[in-house]
């Protein structure tokens, strides 16, 4: 699978852009946390596309964001 580039994303329709990025992001998130991969990917997709593209290229920053999303989710669940 060829890497997703900013120009590929820019060429897509606005509602397709996040889906395109999500398709790449989901398997990576799934490797880190399979049970919450759908939820965590959905949370990460609210981040700017340009930042998401950088995260796809950087396992360290992706990992940090997944951990951050998990912490936010756990804090949210604890409040309910």
């Amino acid at each position: 699978q060829e890497p997703l580039t900013a120009s590929m994303v820019a060429a897509a329709l606005p509602h397709e852009q996040k889906q395109m990025i999500g398709e790449r992001l989901y398997p990576l998130v799934y490797e880190i946390h399979s049970q919450l991969a759908n939820k965590i990917t959905g949370m990460l997709l609210e981040i700017d596309s340009s930042e998401l593209l950088l995260m796809l290229e950087s396992p360290e920053s992706l990992h940090a964001k997944v951990e951050e999303a998990l912490a936010v989710l756990q804090a949210h669940q604890a409040m309910e």
């Binding site: 889906q19 999500g22 398709e23 992001l25 989901y26 398997p27 799934y30 399979s34 759908n38 939820k39 990917t41 959905g42 949370m43 990460l44 997709l45 609210e46 981040i47 964001k65 951050e68 999303a69 912490a71 936010v72 989710l73 804090a75 949210h76 669940q77």
Partner: peptide
Amino acid sequence: RKSTLNPNAKEFNPRSFSQPK
């Protein structure tokens, strides 16, 4: 620092990814 991530975000449903068994 407070996270900007939203715990109420909609779940993402992949079209193409098949989950490994």
